[in-house]
Computed example of a mutant assay.
Amino acid sequence: MGDIVNLRQARKQKARDEKLSAAEQNRALHGRSKAEKQRDRLIAEKAEKFVAGHRREPGDKGSQSVGPKSAPLFSDEPDA
């Protein structure tokens, strides 16, 4: 025969276990020291500056597209 299980106690234990796992995840995400947060912020700022420095501006000569849409249109009419 199987073991007798009190469903009320099982539900409460399951809820406690879920709270503990959520708390562990929050500690991993938010439990960082000030130095770690500052280091991560500096790394993110450096990466943003790098990307911004290599971004092409719309007025640059090199930004003109090359392809069929940018080719001059030709007509069948002869030039006068």
Rank of each mutant, 00 (worst) to 15 (best):
I43E: 10
I43P: 00
L7T: 14
S21Q: 15
K19S: 09
P78N: 11
F74W: 03
K19M: 10
R8L: 02
S21R: 15
E18F: 06
P78E: 13
D79V: 13
S21D: 08
I4P: 01
R56E: 03
H54S: 02
V66M: 04
D60K: 01
G59S: 07
F50T: 05
A28F: 07
E24C: 11
A44I: 07
A10Y: 06
A22N: 04
F50M: 03
D3I: 13
R27W: 08
N6V: 04
D60L: 00
K49I: 01
S75K: 14
P68R: 14
R27P: 02
V66F: 05
R27C: 05
E57Y: 05
Q9Y: 04
D60V: 00
V66R: 12
R11G: 06
G2M: 06
F50Y: 09
H30F: 09
Q13M: 05
G53E: 14
L20F: 02
A22C: 01
G59M: 04
E24H: 12
A10S: 12
L29I: 08
K19D: 11
A23H: 03
E57W: 07
A22H: 08
S70F: 08
D79C: 06
D3K: 10
E48G: 01
D79H: 06
D17F: 05
R8P: 00
G2A: 13
Q9H: 02
D76K: 14
A23C: 01
E24Q: 14
A52H: 02
E45K: 13
L42Y: 07
E24A: 15
E18Q: 15
R27T: 03
Q25W: 04
K14A: 15
D79E: 11
H54V: 05
E24R: 15
K69E: 15
P58I: 11
S70L: 04
R27V: 04
S63E: 10
V51T: 06
P72D: 11
A23I: 09
A10G: 03
Q25M: 03
L20P: 00
R32V: 12
R8V: 10
A35N: 02
A52P: 00
H54P: 01
G59I: 00
A15M: 09
S65F: 03
L73V: 14
I4A: 03
L7M: 12
L29E: 00
L20V: 15
K34C: 01
F74A: 04
M1V: 12
Q9M: 10
A10V: 02
P68F: 07
D17M: 10
G31L: 03
G67P: 06
A44S: 13
R39H: 11
K14E: 14
K34V: 11
I43W: 01
P72L: 12
L29C: 02
